[in-house]
């Protein structure tokens, strides 16, 4: 393969950035989830794709 240095650099940077950003998102999500009272995480519960609700109904813990 010609120019393999450039090609691997480009792919490496893309994959590394995407992985790092994903890890950052997951870790941040974990720490924030634990920082929020369970009753305010309600949109995260089962079948959690309830994002369409701007003000989800209050759920009793």
């Amino acid at each position: 393969m010609t120019h393999s240095g450039f090609i691997f650099a480009a792919w490496g940077i893309v994959l590394a950035v995407l992985v790092l950003y994903s890890v950052h998102l997951v870790l941040r999500g974990r720490s924030l989830t634990n920082a929020v009272e369970p009753e305010h995480r309600r949109w995260l519960d089962s079948g959690a794709e309830t994002k369409g609700v701007s003000h989800p109904p209050r759920e009793q813990p």
Binding site: V26, T33, P38, L44, S46, E59
Partner: peptide
């Protein structure tokens, strides 16, 4: 999963 067990922003969908 009940809300109390949620520990991350992941879900079945993600």
């Amino acid at each position: 999963m009940s809300p109390a067990e949620v520990t991350s922003t992941g879900s079945r969908g993600t």
